[in-house]
Simulated scan of single mutants.
Amino acid sequence: MLTKAIRSVVFLCLFAVLGTVQFVSAASSVWQISQGSSVLYLAGTIHMLRADDYPLPAEFQDVYQASDLLVFETDLAQLLDPVIQNRLQQSLIYPEHNNLRQFISDELYQEIAERWRKANLPPMLLPFMKPGGVAMTLTMSELQSIGVDTQGIDQHFHQRAKRDKKPVRGLESVDQQISYLATMGEGNEELFLKQSFSEMDQSTEFMGELIQAWRDGDKASLERLVVTDMQQQFPALYNRLLVDRNLLWLPQIKQMLKSEKETELVLVGAAHLVGQDGLLRQLAARGYTVQQLP
C-alpha cells in the first residue's frame, strides 16, 4: 500500500473556509482539534517503519499520555485474526474463470512473473492474483529487503494501549477495509501496476523522504511524494480510498468532539489528514479549531 497510487497524502492548504486554522513553523504530524473546551488529537501515521525510526517523535508520546481512548482506522485486533486474514487473502484472488492475464498485456505479465520469481513467491499463485494483491505482495517484499519491516505507528500504539488497558475502537469495519484493498487498480490494471513498479524501484529513496517528511510534519513534501499522481492518474481510486472514507469518518470525529468527558487520540494514515479533501481542512470548514503541534 505504499506506491504513489496507494499512499496518498495531500498538501494542506493554509486557509479555512469557515473555521480557524492555526499552524506553527516547527511542526509535527500531530494536530489538536478543538471546539470550546472539547479537545481531541488527530495523528498521521505510517503503517510500516524501519527499526531506527524508533523512538517516535515526542509529540506522539505526549498525546498518547493525554488521551483516554485510541481510535484507529479499523479494529486492528480483529484485522489480525487468522479468520479475517484468510478472508483478506481470498479477496485478493480472482473468482473462478478469471485471471490476471485477461486484464494486462503479455509484456507486463512477463515482467510481473520475473519480479515474482526474484521475490521467491509461489509461481502457481500469480495468475490468480488481483492487481491490488500483486502490488501489495511485491511492495511488501521490496520494503522488507530495504529494512522497512518494523511495525508501524498504528500497531505500536494499539499494542501499547492493550498493555496499558486503554480502550480502543475503529472508524470502519474490517470488511470495509478488505473491500478497499480488493478493488485497487480495478478497471485500470495495466497503468496501476506499471505505476506501482515504477515507485517500487525507487523505494529506498522514497521511504527515506517519506518518513522524514512525516517526522517533520512537512506537508508540502508529503504532497509531492504521495498524492499528485494518485489524483491525476487514478481519480476513482483517490475518491474511494481517501475522499469517501474521510466523509464517513467526519461524523464520528464530530461526535467525539461533542463530549468533554474523555480525550480521544485518532490515528489514521497521514494521507487522510491534509489537502482539499483531508480531514484537517474539512474540520476547519465546519468551525473547529485545528492546530498543528510543534
Score class of each variant (00 low, 15 high):
199 E>R: 09
119 A>R: 05
283 L>T: 15
27 A>T: 14
230 M>E: 08
23 F>T: 14
211 I>S: 06
50 R>G: 06
65 Q>C: 02
48 M>R: 01
135 A>N: 08
23 F>Q: 14
47 H>C: 11
76 L>N: 01
45 T>A: 07
36 G>W: 06
35 Q>K: 15
8 S>K: 11
110 Q>C: 00
116 W>I: 04
225 L>W: 11
173 S>K: 00
67 S>R: 06
172 E>D: 07
43 A>D: 04
124 M>C: 02
194 K>S: 03
200 M>S: 10
211 I>Q: 08
110 Q>S: 03
91 S>W: 10
141 S>E: 06
41 Y>I: 09
113 A>I: 11
163 R>Y: 07
205 E>A: 10
52 D>Y: 12
172 E>F: 02
186 E>C: 00
70 L>A: 01
153 I>R: 13
80 L>V: 07
26 A>S: 15
246 N>R: 13
107 E>A: 10
262 E>H: 10
159 Q>K: 04
65 Q>H: 10
230 M>G: 13
109 Y>P: 00
285 A>K: 03
269 G>C: 08
142 E>G: 08
221 S>E: 12
148 V>M: 14
220 A>M: 04
259 S>I: 02
223 E>A: 13
200 M>E: 08
24 V>K: 09
88 L>K: 05
240 R>L: 05
206 F>L: 07
173 S>D: 00
94 Y>V: 00
164 D>M: 05
234 F>C: 07
226 V>H: 11
124 M>F: 15
24 V>L: 08
127 P>D: 05
29 S>R: 09
190 E>D: 05
245 R>S: 08
169 R>N: 04
273 L>F: 13
253 I>K: 01
54 Y>R: 03
205 E>G: 07
251 P>E: 10
217 G>V: 12
61 Q>W: 09
61 Q>C: 09
82 P>H: 04
44 G>K: 04
141 S>Y: 06
212 Q>A: 06
130 K>V: 00
19 G>E: 00
259 S>K: 09
4 K>G: 14
108 L>S: 04
195 Q>E: 10
281 R>H: 15
4 K>A: 14
16 A>T: 12
37 S>V: 12
158 H>F: 15
208 G>T: 13
206 F>I: 05
240 R>T: 12
291 Q>I: 14
138 L>E: 03
184 M>D: 08
80 L>D: 04
110 Q>R: 01
198 S>R: 13
145 S>H: 02
162 K>F: 07
21 V>Q: 13
96 E>I: 09
274 V>I: 13
258 K>R: 08
19 G>K: 00
7 R>W: 12
72 F>Y: 12
270 A>K: 06
23 F>R: 12
89 Q>V: 04
107 E>W: 03
251 P>I: 09
162 K>D: 06
260 E>G: 15
128 F>I: 02
277 D>R: 14
86 N>C: 01
184 M>R: 12
136 M>D: 05
249 W>N: 11
244 D>N: 13
69 L>V: 15
194 K>P: 00
132 G>C: 02
